[in-house]
Computed example of a mutant assay.
Amino acid sequence: MHEVMCVWRRPGPEDVGLARCLTDGALAAAGMDEAGLGVARLAVSEAFTNALLHGRPEVGVEVWARPDRCGVVEVYDTGPTVPVFPEPEELAWVTGDHGRGLGLIQAFTREACGAYPCGVGKRVWFAVAMDGRALDAHRTRALVEERARLRAPRSTALLA
């Protein structure tokens, strides 16, 4: 069973810190240790900032957990373009001020992350083990996909 820990919507850049604090509180309440919380803080900061810069309002965060397994954070916005995570070797070639956020999320979460369209907009998600260890990225992706399918309208194709 998945337990929704918090759902929060805010549209402003001043709210990145608040998104980080709420995510941190929800995951700590679910039993995540400090190593996992540190990863989640970094990743939610990147994902929320990316949603503000590249998405469209409304921007929000949903945090849910599988007890004794992992916490999942989904950052969503109403922009239509689903981002593509870079291949690991591509990150070294990204230059300039933009383009590194998704690669950083990938690195922080050891590739237990992804993105998918949902209703109006998209969700960028990442998962962190309760004890900060590496997760099986394929198994975690299947868990997130299952939850997304259960939540979505029947006519929407979620994960292409």
Score class of each variant (00 low, 15 high):
1 M>D: 13
3 E>Q: 14
9 R>L: 05
9 R>K: 10
18 L>Q: 14
21 C>K: 13
22 L>D: 00
25 G>I: 08
25 G>T: 09
27 L>D: 07
27 L>V: 06
31 G>S: 04
32 M>G: 05
33 D>I: 01
33 D>G: 06
35 A>D: 08
38 G>Q: 08
40 A>D: 02
40 A>S: 03
44 V>Y: 03
48 F>L: 04
50 N>F: 05
52 L>G: 06
53 L>S: 09
54 H>C: 10
57 P>E: 08
57 P>I: 00
66 R>L: 11
68 D>N: 10
69 R>F: 10
69 R>K: 10
71 G>V: 02
73 V>T: 12
76 Y>K: 04
76 Y>D: 06
77 D>A: 06
78 T>C: 11
78 T>D: 14
80 P>E: 04
85 F>C: 03
86 P>R: 09
87 E>A: 15
88 P>L: 10
88 P>H: 12
88 P>S: 11
90 E>V: 03
91 L>Y: 08
92 A>S: 11
94 V>H: 11
94 V>S: 11
95 T>N: 11
95 T>E: 12
98 H>M: 11
102 L>E: 01
107 A>Y: 11
109 T>I: 00
110 R>Q: 09
118 C>N: 10
119 G>A: 11
123 R>E: 04
126 F>I: 04
134 A>C: 02
136 D>T: 03
137 A>Q: 08
141 R>S: 15
142 A>K: 11
145 E>L: 14
146 E>Q: 03
147 R>I: 10
148 A>W: 03
149 R>D: 15
152 A>I: 01
153 P>Y: 05
155 S>H: 14
156 T>D: 12
157 A>Q: 12
157 A>E: 11
160 A>H: 13
